[in-house]
Amino acid sequence: MIDILREGLMGSFDTVYSLAIVVIPLMIIMQIAKDYKVLDKISNSSRFLTKFLGMSKESTLPLLIGIIFGLSYGAGVLIQSAKEGDLSKKDMFLISVFLITCHAVFEDTLLFVAVGANGYLLLGTRIIAAIIITFILSKRLQISEDRLKERVSEN
């Protein structure tokens, strides 16, 4: 029993250490990115992504924030932008779909990589899945919007 406890303690400290040496530098880099508003600067060059996904220009920054800094922070920014009237209902819905599938990508990926997972496969799968599902839903919304307009013009 003592052996098992010792094994558990040693093993868990080992794991915590291997995660700490990833998490602490990551948090420093993310804090610098946040304070220097790096995302504001790259949000223009990421416009192609939101365009492809059928979102407005104003969606780019909240989407990037969620992808990089996580769901809670992203949701906060999203709710704020919606209140200020920058985002349509469709934007809100599509950003939510994307972020539900794919958020805090650096933190999550690095944690799993630290314990042995293949990071490229992990990150690639997650981003591609989020893009596909958001794209499909955006097309479906577009179709139903068009139908609605047709019906209105018919009447």
Binding site: I24, M27, I28, I29, M30, Q31, I32, K34, D35
Partner: peptide, 8 residues
Amino acid sequence: SIKTGTKK
């Protein structure tokens, strides 16, 4: 930033 990041 480094201080806040380290703390986080």
